[in-house]
Design a protein around this nucleic acid. Structure first.
Lengths: 395, 395
DNA sequence: AGCCATTAATTTACGCTGTCAATAAAAGAG
DNA sequence: CTCTTTTATTGACAGCGTAAATTAATGGCT
C-alpha cells in the first residue's frame, strides 16, 4: 500500500497497459504481437498501451537481430529499460537487515547488510532509514530515480494495509510499517511477508514466469512455502498460508516449537538438523557450516540427519503437489548449501509420495544468495509501482 | 464442454451479465444495488444486464415486503425463477448410477438410482441414456425445458475437453464422455470430477457462497477434497488436485493402495476402518453399517478405529488449512453417518495441528444425502449453461 | 535494376460494454 | 405539497476488441 504519493507515477492507468508491461517485463523482449498473445489481449491494445510507455522511457524498441524469418516484415522487439528506474528492497530478520538496490528489471545493483542490535520497531526503523539513505546515495551513480521501497518481514503481514500483524522473530505486533517507513524515507512503501515476496520475485523474474500454478519452497532456519494459484499469490483468508514447515510428516517425530511433533521444520530446519547431529554423534556442532563439514566428511550420524531432512522436505512437497497440483516446485533457500546431502532423498520421497499425475510436477532447485530475500522485497515494490492495486493473474 | 448446441441459450452474452446472474442465483433475492456491490460492478451495469434476463423469464422482480426501511424509494428485489429451467445431474460410481432432476436453483425435483452391472463405457452410456430419459419424462410435469446435463465421475477428468482421462472405479481411460453423452441425449453435456462438482455445488448453492477461499472434504469410501482459491475451483496443472486422501499422516501407518503408508485414506477410508475393526476385535464386520453399530454399542476396538480415523482426517484438514488458509472447511460425505464417533477427534486434532491463525478457519459439517453427488453434477451443468467458458471468480 | 507478389507487423476506424455522473422515481416526514 | 432519502435509470464517455487498411521488408520475375 502506498502511504505517500510516489515521486513519479507509472504512465499506465488502464489494467491492460499494466498487464502488457508486466508481460514484457517478465518475458523479456517481445514483438508486440507476441506480447498480445501472451497477455491474452489484441495487438491493437498492445500498440496503444506501448506508445506512452515508450514515450516515458519505460520501454525501448530494438530490431530483432537474430531469428529473423526469411519472409515478411521483420519484427521490432519491445523490452523494458531496466535502467529507467530503481527500487530498494529490505529484508528484516531478527539479527540483521539486508538491503538491495535494484533496477526496474529487478537486477541487483548494490547489496548491503547491517546487523540489528535492537528489535524494537523504532530502532529497526532508524536503521532502515540509514540503509535506505546509503543505498540512495549509491543510486546517484546510475542516473535514475528511486521510485519505491519494499520491505519483507517474516510472519503475519497484511500487505494491503501495510501492517505487520505479528512477527515472532522481531517480536512485533500490529506495526503499521508501511506508514512509518514512508514517513522516514519519503518513498512509496510496500510491506509483505518474506516468503510471499520471494514468490513474487520468482513469478515475475524467476522460474515461475508464465506459470499459473507453482510453489516456492524455502529451506533454511525455517521451512517456508509460497503458492501461486490461478496466477495469483495465495495469502490465505486469515493471513496464514504456505505453512509447509508445520505440516506433520511424522506424528512420532521430534517436538516442534509450534507444539506438535514431527513437523517438517522440526526435522529439516537448521536447528533440528544440528540437534539431531549432536544427539547421534555426540559432536557439539556449533552451526550449520560445521554440520555440513561433518556430513561431507562422511560421518554417518550427520549424513543421516541430512537424509532425514531430505525425506521430510520431499514428503512436504509431495503434500503440496497432491493438494494443489502445481506445474512446478522451486526449492530454494540458504539450506541449499547442503543440497547434495539431501537432493536424492527429496526427489525419491517426492516421487514415491506424490499421487498419480502429481508426480509429473517439475521439481527444480535454485541457489538463493543472501540478497535474494531483499530482492523479493524489491520485486513487491516494483509490482506496487506498476499495478497500484493488487495485480491481476499474470500469464 | 458443450458438444451440441444447447436447446436454448442463456441471454447473457457479456461477462458482467453472467456474473450478476450468478450473484443473484447464489445470494438469493437482492436489490439491484446490492447485487452490484457484491458482484463488484456498477448499479448501471446491473440495470442493463437484468433487463433481458427479466424479459426471458430467468429473473423475476418482487417488492421487498419485510425489512423495508422507513425512508427512501422502496427497493425491488430481483431473484432467479428456479422453475424457469431444469437440469439433470448424474453421478457414476463403480456399482450404480445416481441421477437427479433439478431446477435452475439446483433444488432437487426428482432423484433416481440404477445399479450398474457392466462398467464398459458403452454399457454405462446406455444406462445413462435410460436414466436421462426417465428423468426427462418426469420433467414434463414441471413445465420447463431441460437445458443441460452434468456428469460427475471420480478420477482424472478434463472438464474443458469433456474427457474422462482415467477413472479407476469404472476402469475407463480417455473416454470422450461429453461427446458420447451429448450424442445419446441431445443435451449440452458437462463432465467433471465428482469432488470438484460437489465443490461447485457448495460454491454456488451451499456453504461456500460468497467465499473466495474454502475447501470441501468428503469422507466415505475415499477421502477427497475440493479447493476453491481466489474464487475458483482448483483443478491442478496435471489434472490432480485435492488429493487429501493420499496425504501421509503417519509414515508408520497401514499400507495404502497407492503404495505408501499411513495415507489419510488408509486410516479413515471405509475399507481401512473395517479392516482395523476386524483386526482389533476379531469380529468379521461385513460393511460400514455393522461397523457403526459395533462402535455405537461401545466396543473398544471399533471406537478406537473411528477415533483414529477422526485424528487422520483432522490432521489432513489441518494440513490443508496450513497450506491454503481457507476461510472455511466443509466436511461432508457418506462417512458422516458416523460423525458422532469422530467429530471430537477431528476438531481436537485440527485445532492442535493448525498453525497460528490457520486455526481460526471455520470447520463445518454438513450431511450429504446420496443424491448430493448427482446434484453437484447438475450444478456444473447449470454453471456451463450460465457461463459457457469457465467461470470467473465469484464473490 | 525495377516491379510486383508475398508475408508479417502495426495502425486506424469503429462497435460493444461497462463506468461515472446526472436525473427520475417512489415513498415518508414535516 | 415540498423536502429528504434511497433506489433505479439514463446518457455521455472511455477502454478494449475486431476487422480492415497501412506500412515494411524480401524474393521472384522481367
Amino acid at each position: 500500500m502506498r502511504s505517500t504519493p510516489p515521486a513519479e507515477t507509472f504512465p499506465a492507468h488502464t489494467p491492460a497497459a499494466s498487464q502488457i508491461f508486466t508481460t514484457v517485463l517478465s518475458q523479456g523482449p517481445l514483438t508486440r504481437l507476441e506480447a498480445a498473445r501472451r497477455a491474452g489481449l489484441s495487438a491493437a491494445a498492445v500498440t496503444k498501451a506501448v506508445r506512452p510507455l515508450l514515450a516515458a522511457g519505460y520501454l525501448v524498441e530494438s530490431a530483432d537481430e537474430e531469428a529473423r524469418p526469411a519472409l515478411g516484415r521483420p519484427a521490432s522487439l519491445v523490452r523494458v529499460d531496466g535502467g529507467r528506474a530503481l527500487f530498494i528492497g529490505l529484508k528484516a530478520t531478527g539479527g540483521e537487515l539486508i538491503g538491495v538496490l535494484t533496477d526496474l528489471c529487478c537486477r541487483i545493483r548494490i547489496a548491503r547488510r547491517i546487523s540489528l542490535t535492537d528489535r524494537q520497531d523504532t530502532a529497526v526503523l532508524a536503521v532502515m532509514g540509514e540503509l535506505v539513505h546509503e543505498l540512495r546515495t549509491g543510486a546517484v551513480d546510475f542516473g535514475a530515480p528511486v521510485l519505491g521501497l519494499g520491505v519483507a518481514v517474516s510472519g503475519d503481514v497484511d500487505r494491503a494495509e501495510g501492517v505487520v500483524r505479528y512477527s515472532p522473530f522481531l517480536d512485533w505486533r500490529d506495526v503499521p510499517l508501511a506508514e512509518l517507513a514512508a514517513k522516514t524515507t519519503g518513498l512509496p512503501v510496500t510491506v509483505d511477508n518474506d516468503v510471499r515476496a520471494l514468490t513474487v520475485a520468482e513469478q515475475w523474474f524467476g522460474a515461475g514466469v508464465g506459470l499459473a500454478d507453482f510453489a516456492v519452497v524455502t529451506v533454511g532456519a525455517g521451512i517456508g512455502c509460497g503458492l501461486v494459484v490461478h496466477g495469483r499469490v495465495v495469502a490465505g483468508a486469515h493471513g496464514v498460508a504456505g505453512e509447509i514447515g508445520h505440516v506433520t510428516v511424522d506424528p512420532a517425530g521430534p517436538p516442534c516449537h509450534c507444539g506438535n511433533r514431527g513437523c517438517v521444520e522440526a526435522i529439516a530446519g537448521d536447528a533440528a538438523i544440528l540437534r539431531r547431529i549432536r544427539e547421534s554423534t555426540g559432536v557439539e556442532v556449533a552451526d550449520t557450516s560445521e554440520a555440513l563439514a561433518l556430513a561431507h566428511r562422511g560421518v554417518a550420524g550427520a549424513r543421516e540427519a541430512y537424509a532425514g531432512a531430505g525425506e521430510a522436505i520431499g514428503r512436504g512437497i509431495a503434500t503440496v503437489a497432491n493438494l494443489f497440483g502445481p506445474e512446478r516446485v522451486i526449492i530454494s533457500g540458504e539450506g541449499l548449501a547442503g543440497y547434495d546431502l539431501f537432493a536424492e532423498q527429496i526427489r525419491d520421497t517426492f516421487t514415491q509420495a506424490a499421487f498419480g499425475s502429481a508426480a509429473h510436477c517439475d521439481v527444480q532447485t535454485r541457489p538463493l544468495p543472501f540478497e535474494e530475500w531483499a530482492r523479493g522485497a524489491a520485486a513487491t515494490a516494483i509490482q506496487s509501482f506498476i499495478t497500484p492495486d493488487d495485480p491481476p493473474p499474470s500469464r
